[in-house]
């Protein structure tokens, strides 16, 4: 299959990345060549193959539901681009 410009703009919207109109053509070309490469997989019949979901021969461990750190609000907020006392600040979302 091939990806057209509209499809790419839609996927960019889903990924929350604005795409410069001037770059859409080259992006379309690159992604199509990558997908052509990827689609070699269609040569293989995988009807009877189980998908590999974990590379480890162990199931994921679960830990006790306990707080192991806590009281690190300052640390969590220290890298925020915009904050107000103990809150992250974002552009207005509710009118």
């Amino acid at each position: 299959m091939s990806l057209d410009k509209e499809k790419i703009k839609h996927v960019a919207k889903l990924a929350r990345i604005s795409v410069d109109e001037a770059k859409v053509d080259s992006l379309t070309k690159d992604l199509n060549s990558i997908f052509k490469f990827i689609e070699q997989l269609n040569e293989l019949n995988t009807d009877k193959v189980e998908p590999l979901t974990s590379i480890l021969n162990q199931s994921l461990r679960s830990r006790k539901d306990e707080i192991s750190d806590g009281k690190i609000r300052e640390k969590i907020l220290q890298n925020s681009p915009k904050k107000n006392e103990e809150f992250f600040v974002v552009p207005k979302v509710v009118e």
Binding site: L41, N42, T46, V49, E50, P51, L52
Partner: peptide, 10 residues
Amino acid sequence: KAQKVRQLIK
């Protein structure tokens, strides 16, 4: 599809 081929590679 990729997860299945990954199984074959493994």
